[in-house]
C-alpha cells in the first residue's frame, strides 16, 4: 500500500495532531512514512498544509498536484485551495466550517459560495460534514481532528484498530473516550453516506 495524505486548514486549527495520529498509524502498520509539518507561529491565521506519505519506501516529504490520495480539510476554502493536489479518484474530506481570510474581512475579496457543490460537480469524492458539531456531540469540539480522520477511515487504508490505537497513543488519556466516540460516529456517518 502507498498513500499520500494531506491535512489542510488554517494555522492554529490543530492540524498537527491529525498528522501525528496518521504518522503513528503508519509506523504501527510497519510502513515507511514521512510527515512534513509547518512549525513556528509565523503561519498563525494563514493557510497551512501538512503532508503525510506512507509506503514501502518514501523519499519526498511533500505531495505535488494530482498526487494526493486523501485530503483532510478543516475548512471549506482551504479544501478548494488544495483540491488541485488531489489525485484522480482521490477522496476529499472537509469540515463545512468556514473561516473568512483577511482579504474577505477587509472586503478586498469574496468568499466564494457553493464550493462544496462545485467540487462535487467535478466528479470528486467529496465528504463534507460539520466536524466540530460531530466532535461537540461526542463531548469536545477539540475532537474535530479525529472526526475528520474517522470520516476518511476507509480511504486512508489503515486497519481501523490501528487507527484507534494511534488515536489512543496521541491524545491525552482524559480525552480518549471523547475522541474515540467522535471517530466512531464519523466512521458510521461515512458508511451511511456511501449506502
Amino acid at each position: 500500500m502507498s498513500k499520500n495524505i494531506m491535512i489542510v486548514g488554517v494555522g492554529g486549527q490543530g492540524t498537527l495532531l491529525a498528522s501525528k495520529i496518521l504518522g503513528k498509524a503508519a509506523m504501527d502498520s510497519g510502513m515507511d512514512v514521512k510527515v512534513s509539518e509547518v512549525h513556528g507561529m509565523s503561519q498563525r491565521g494563514g493557510s497551512v498544509v501538512t503532508y503525510v506519505r506512507v509506503g514501502d519506501e518514501v523519499y519526498s516529504p511533500v505531495i505535488g498536484r494530482g498526487d494526493a490520495d486523501v485530503i483532510l480539510s478543516f475548512e471549506v476554502l482551504e479544501a478548494a485551495r488544495w483540491l488541485p493536489n488531489l489525485k484522480n479518484g482521490g477522496t476529499l474530506v472537509t469540515s463545512t466550517q468556514q473561516i473568512n481570510p483577511m482579504p474577505v474581512i477587509t472586503g478586498a475579496a469574496e468568499y466564494p459560495e457553493g464550493l462544496v457543490d462545485d467540487m462535487k460537480a467535478l466528479g470528486v469524492d467529496v465528504r463534507a460534514f460539520d466536524a466540530p458539531a460531530i466532535a461537540a456531540e461526542a463531548g469536545s469540539v477539540r475532537a474535530a481532528n479525529v472526526a475528520l480522520i474517522g470520516m476518511a477511515a476507509d480511504a486512508l487504508g489503515f486497519d481501523h484498530d490501528i487507527l484507534r490505537g494511534a488515536v489512543a497513543a496521541c491524545v491525552p488519556a482524559k480525552a480518549l473516550e471523547v475522541n474515540l466516540k467522535a471517530f466512531d460516529t464519523a466512521v458510521t456517518l461515512a458508511e451511511k453516506a456511501k449506502n
Binding site: G45, G46, S47, R65, A80, N88, M102, A108
Partner: peptide, 19 residues
Amino acid sequence: EPDFCEVGAAIPGRPPVLC
C-alpha cells in the same frame, strides 16, 4: 505534467495575520 482538477471560482489568499 501533473493531472489535476480545480474549481472555477477565484480562491482568495489567506495570509498569516496578527492573532
